[in-house]
């Protein structure tokens, strides 16, 4: 096997199409031309750097030098494109060189926006861990009707529970159902403008509103998820509830509880599950009949895989997935 490369490091290491060498910065970072999204530029530079980096110590000196040049170009692209003044100069020169109408390109792009935000289901009876990108030009409906953009499967939700709208560059949430309720950051709301990181609770689900660029960057990256399953007790609309690591939720008979266990001897705010120092912890909220962990009454205790919780007449098993 030959250890020689074709003489174009940009196509060998970055899979860039043939063309100008070194490629112009947007092509190098595989971004749309004149992209002005700082975080995406930084992310793209990191991604391209990652691709080339392992080849940096190539045994062949010449090859190493070629790779070093690619790395330098990536670093330069990042420096130039994230500095407004330098970017302006670069863009002007580039537009002129390629004979492109920059204003035209940017105007046409406004019409087809790139998704910037997403909703992630971080707790609920089903679909936990799923992320839905939000397209700015659509009305994003939430509910259990099959026509909803975000289709959720709890009977606690209305057919059309709520919707997200994008106006003047901002997303807002509106609770549209006649019954039921929506909490945002633990406050009951009818309508609210959303901020990145907002926590929407509706019908037994938690939806996190996040910037797409922040995906995967959260502490612990949601490990380990927990699932609570009713193994004995009265029947319920949702016999299980899951949540990703980092989440917290209320268990009780109250309508505002994320996991509603309606039955005898369950207090309205019975206990809380939360994620602390990489562990799931249950805290009893001074319930009348107490929270039992493996048969013992506890005020606060870490929960392990296959532990049993007794809440009123419900016997619940905890499963932790690693």
């Amino acid at each position: 096997m030959s250890l020689n490369w074709v003489d174009d490091p940009y196509s060998d290491f970055l899979d860039l199409p043939a063309g100008e060498r070194p490629p112009q910065f947007y092509q190098l970072l595989e971004l749309e031309i004149f992209c002005a999204h700082r975080e995406r530029i930084e992310q793209a530079a990191r991604k391209q750097f990652r691709k080339v980096k392992p080849y940096q110590e190539h045994p062949d000196r010449k090859m190493r030098e070629a790779i070093q040049d690619v790395i330098t170009q990536i670093a330069r692209a990042r420096v130039v494109l994230t500095d407004p003044e330098k970017k302006e100069d670069y863009d002007c020169a580039l537009a002129q060189r390629l004979g492109i109408d920059r204003a035209g390109v940017l105007a046409s792009r406004m019409a087809t926006p790139v998704p910037e935000f997403a909703l992630t289901i971080t707790a609920g009876p089903t679909d936990v861990g799923n992320t839905i990108e939000l397209l700015a030009d659509t009305r994003v409906t939430v509910g259990r009707d099959p026509h909803c953009v975000i289709l959720l499967h709890s009977l606690r939700l209305a057919k059309l529970h709520g919707e997200l709208r994008h106006q003047h560059g901002r997303w807002s949430y509106t609770h549209v159902a006649r019954d039921g309720l929506t909490l945002i950051n633990e406050q009951r709301v009818v309508e609210k403008e959303l901020e990145a990181g907002d926590r929407i609770e509706a019908g037994g689900y938690v939806l996190r509103f996040r910037r797409l660029t922040d995906l995967g960057k959260e502490p612990g990256s949601y490990q380990p998820p927990i699932t609570l399953i009713v193994i004995r007790g009265p029947s319920l609309p949702d016999a299980s509830c899951s949540a990703v690591g980092g989440e917290r939720f209320l268990i009780g008979s109250c309508e505002t509880a994320l996991w509603q266990l309606a039955g005898p001897w369950v207090s309205r705010h019975h206990c809380r599950m939360e994620f602390e120092a990489k562990r799931w912890v249950v805290t009893d909220l001074r319930s009348t009949h107490g929270t039992m962990l493996n048969g013992k009454r506890v005020a606060r205790s870490p929960v392990q895989d296959r532990d049993t919780l007794s809440i009123g007449r419900f016997e619940v098993m905890a499963r932790l997935h690693s």
């Binding site: 930084e42 530079a45 990191r46 750097f49 980096k53 790395i71 670093a75 960057k217 502490p219 612990g220």
Partner: peptide, 23 residues
């Protein structure tokens, strides 16, 4: 500036590899 940018990229990629955030 590009040399410094390289150190920055390495730091950010390392945090990402280690599943850590600055906090």
């Amino acid at each position: 500036a590009d040399l410094l940018a390289r150190t920055q990229i390495s730091v950010e990629n390392l945090l990402e590899d280690a599943l850590l955030t600055w906090d």
